[in-house]
């Protein structure tokens, strides 16, 4: 991806995905604003970045669009842009016409009646127009109405479970080569990485400006060492996301995604805790922006499987090898 696209996305998100907008969306009063923002995003062509050039898209590889996904995390964009990019590529590849609106990616859970499809908790389902749901044998596209959503608990959450009648499927796609859970896990790993870099910068800035005992608290070793740990976690998470991002196409390798999601989800718990520890009482006040980010960190950490889910998946693959060093496994199966 050229820097132009990244710079354009950075400007758009900085101008429009503001704390004020996010607060309005969370309060349920921002529908007009986020609809307007979505139209601006659509106008940039970003939504079709991963769609084949022959099918009217930009034909970019996932790694090329990663900077935009990181930015959507950095600005905690309250709209499922990253998910829509993948969904549109899948729909285009299946020859299904693309609906107008954000599309979330979801996995069906086994519970429930045979004529319905239900999902786990999906971030940004509250602001989405559609859901692409993988039931293991194929994917269905559904339009989302407020009645289809079971909103997640927690103040300001934009996550929801989806429950829809199978008969309302707008289109059925063949099973992708990689499950939607894997793809969506990588998207959430990338958003976590982007948001955690922002949190580190916010926390360093706070450490340099907040004065106690006559000097900025960032001058105290106790604070410095916590921020160093934060930087370590953010760095390891960031490179794991890069390593999982496919150069071409948009379907990642499940084991590399396992590393990316394990690292980012593990880091999210540590990074969120340190950010709040350094910010003190200010950080847990509603009017301060920190909580907008750390609440989203919690959502993304558990979306599409937490660190333990992906550790288990990766560990079973390591144990299934008959012999060889763990480094040989990492080198041949997990590295670029």
């Amino acid at each position: 991806m050229d820097d132009m696209l990244e710079n354009m996305a950075a400007r758009l998100f900085a101008d429009r995905s503001t704390p004020a907008l996010i607060r309005a969306v969370e309060a349920g009063t921002g529908r007009d604003q986020f609809t307007g923002l979505w139209q601006e995003i659509v106008a940039t062509g970003l939504c079709d970045s991963l769609v084949d050039e022959g099918k009217g898209g930009s034909g970019l590889g996932f790694a090329e669009i990663l900077p935009v996904i990181l930015l959507s995390g950095r600005f905690i964009l309250p709209l499922a842009l990253a998910e829509t990019m993948v969904a549109r590529a899948l729909l285009a590849d299946a020859g299904v016409s693309v609906p107008d609106g954000p599309i979330v990616l979801a996995t069906a859970v086994s519970a429930g009646a045979a004529d319905r499809i239900e999902t786990g908790v999906i971030p940004l389902a509250a602001t989405a127009g559609f859901a692409l749901i993988d039931d293991g044998a194929g994917c269905d596209l559904f339009a989302l109405n407020p009645a289809d959503l079971i909103r997640a608990p927690g103040r300001g959450s934009l996550s929801a479970q989806v429950s829809v009648a199978r008969s309302t499927s707008l289109a059925r796609l063949p099973t992708p080569l990689v499950s939607l859970r894997v793809v969506a896990a990588l998207l959430h790993a990338a958003k976590l990485s982007g948001a955690m870099k922002r949190l580190l910068a916010m926390t360093v800035d706070y450490g340099n400006t907040r004065v106690q005992f006559g000097r900025p608290i960032g001058k105290f070793q106790a604070i410095q060492h916590q921020l160093a740990v934060m930087a370590e976690q953010v760095s390891a998470a960031a490179i794991a996301v890069e390593a999982a991002s496919p150069e071409t196409g948009y379907l990642p390798d499940p084991l590399r995604v396992a590393v990316a999601k394990e690292r980012t989800s593990s880091a999210a718990a540590i990074v969120g805790a340190i950010a709040h520890a350094v910010h003190g009482a200010m950080g847990i006040s509603e009017e301060y922006d920190l909580q907008l980010f750390t609440r989203r960190l919690q959502d993304w950490r558990v979306a599409d499987g937490s660190e333990s889910y992906w550790s288990g998946l990766l560990g079973r693959a390591v144990l299934a090898e008959k012999s060889g060093s763990v480094i040989d496994f990492i080198r041949t199966r997990l590295a670029t």
Binding site: V259, E262, L313, I327, I330, L334
Partner: peptide
């Protein structure tokens, strides 16, 4: 898995 993941990163 978690040890492998840490080491891979």
């Amino acid at each position: 898995g978690s040890m492998t993941s840490r080491l891979a990163a």
